[in-house]
Design a protein around this nucleic acid. Structure first.
Lengths: 352, 352
DNA sequence: CTGAAAGCGCTTACAG
DNA sequence: CTGAAAGCGCTTACAG
């Protein structure tokens, strides 16, 4: 907790027989300093292993060299990649990343924000926890610049980096339609999540454009975890004829659905086509590999850092609202073209 | 970059008609303050939405409330989990995590350390980049407490949280031996890495204990990536009779080896047994699922944070050297028992 | 080109 | 129990 007695500008100034001001000017690379003086000071800096106290400088200059990154949890590879991108871009601009995790818990998020704000970050990149209270978040944050990622928030104008949820789901649905599927379900996620609503809207649009009205039985909700998705799988097959394909809320759900399908002897990619969303690393490794939408979370992280720093530099510019592109990656899980509607008896598609 | 004009203790003191000292005492929860005064001050703190400036307090008290975490890269799920554990434990103790990534590049590591040190962390948790120069690292770090994770460093005494590399590899090898394998290879990793040397040592020990002298052809090195491992796979089968199983340096290598095996028509878990190391999330999802050693990186992160904070609190205690346990997780990739040595002609094991 | 002085927001003996 | 004063390590007008 307590730091060592460190070498300060005072020590250097005394040793070089100049004033602290001169040392400070050397440190900050000012051209006002005589080259000889500069050289002497720099040598002394090296000799005494001076390390700059950025906190003190920030206090005096009323600046900040840190940015807070508040996400759900690093153990989610999507956010880990995102964080890596944020840190990379911030580091390149001379900022250090302060980490905070909410665990999708709004109360914890509030506490984490309060705590991080005491460190005076130049700005905050926040991927809001589900069910966050936008007004409370705004109150905690005050005037510190914020960029929202992935999830919108009520309570005022926010800078926001969103994903193309709607278009992505439309691409996935169109892909399944093009393969000949007609009875396509939307599987997983929860209606109170804005990203789930957007993806579902994209799916509904694509279906409508193809002249298909999704049936109620083709919509199965579940928490976005593998286990829940596996458990929810039978619900897809309760009505005859069941769907032959599903657009899944995300990769975790899709991987869980694969397990659920296998458990009932339905072969994913053969008897049933499905797509994910996110392109997490495991998506390429599942059996069959998962057709999904690639979001490139690392690039999103870099982008988020850039957008936030723009806001930090011009606090009065108009709010920004950027939608990051998403691309369809076709792999085995969506299967081959099917020639026509399967026979009314579904057993021909679900036998092992 | 520039922060807003913030509410300070001065503003609160003026509004309450007390001195700054009194406000400060209230903030720090001192019992010396009259309850009435305390209540008034606390009300005013709320009213003006005062936010504590921890940097200023740290400067004055010569303390720190941050810890730097320097790792290879968050996009490695092993380190992402580790970071999540570190951040969780540090947060619980009132510290904020400063993030830094080296990308396994010693020069970048040096720059990252220099930059983080200017923020005056109370300590540093460092998972050294490969080929780091311990002396240079020590020079950069000076007297700031450091805990090394995962990789040892020369140049003096370090606090170190290691993994049971040797014992883990022994467990894996014993497992394959118990299944009846005799010609067991050690596959992947590079001899200049201390963790690879340790794992290999454990493998050699287990083999020796079983009365088997590993042949030179059973040792194939490659970079610890999936792609390199897949490419190195044929090298395992160049001599007759080839090995029937392999202890792999880590999970990435093992997953790459599976791809390499499949490419040559050898079925992992059926024609050839293999084990990994780390238990990354993908290990459970591969086909077949990977038998591996579970390290619980998140728990390691929490442990690292605790160890570092111990050092911060007692700078003069003896260096600590903790070895974290590792457990064998048996899955399909190591296959079933084999009754005896396979026939001399290896084709009976490599046919599809 | 260089130095003396004031001040960023806080805390801590020291008096009273 | 409360206040005046000094100081953490730095920077920035302002003189000279």
């Amino acid at each position: 907790m307590t730091r060592q007695k460190a070498v300060t500008v005072n020590d250097i100034a005394r040793a070089c027989d100049v004033s602290r001001a001169t040392v400070s000017l050397v440190l900050r690379g000012s051209p006002l300093v005589n080259v000889g003086t500069r050289a002497r000071v720099e040598a002394e800096l090296k000799r005494q292993r001076y390390v700059y106290n950025r906190a003190a400088a920030n206090l005096r200059r009323r600046t900040s060299s840190s940015v807070a990154l508040v996400i759900n949890d690093l153990s989610n590879p999507f956010f880990a990649e995102f964080a890596a991108g944020v840190d990379e871009a911030l580091g390149a601009e001379g900022y250090v990343t302060l980490l905070g995790s909410t665990g999708e818990n709004p109360a914890r998020q509030q506490a984490v924000l309060d705590s991080l704000l005491e460190h005076g970050p130049a700005g905050i990149i926040l991927s809001p926890a589900a069910h966050s209270d936008g007004v409370a978040v705004r109150r905690a944050i005050g005037n510190t610049p914020v960029l929202l990622f992935n999830r919108a928030l009520t309570g005022g104008d926010w800078d926001f980096l969103a994903l193309e949820n709607e278009r992505g789901a439309r691409l996935a649905t169109d892909h399944l339609l093009a393969l000949g599927h007609r009875r396509i379900a939307f599987f997983g996620g929860q209606g109170d999540s804005s990203s789930c609503r957007q993806r579902r809207r994209g799916y509904v649009e694509a279906m409508s454009s193809a002249g298909i009205a999704p049936e109620a039985a083709w919509h199965v909700e579940c928490a976005p975890t593998r286990v829940d998705a596996a458990h929810a799988t039978p619900a897809l097959f309760e009505h005859d004829p069941p769907p032959t394909a599903a657009v899944c809320y995300n990769d975790n759900v899709a991987l869980g659905l694969m397990l659920g399908l296998q458990a009932r002897g339905t072969r994913p990619g053969v008897d049933f086509a499905l797509t994910g969303f996110d392109d997490i690393p495991e998506a390429a490794l599942s059996t069959p590999p998962l057709t999904t939408l690639s979001v490139d979370p690392r690039a999103r992280g870099r982008q988020a850092a850039e957008l936030l720093l723009q806001r930090v530099r011009s606090p009065d510019a108009a709010p920004c609202n950027v939608v990051a592109p998403v691309t369809l990656v076709v792999r085995g899980s969506s299967g081959a073209s099917i020639s026509s509607e399967p026979a009314p008896n579904p057993s021909n598609r679900t036998s092992a």
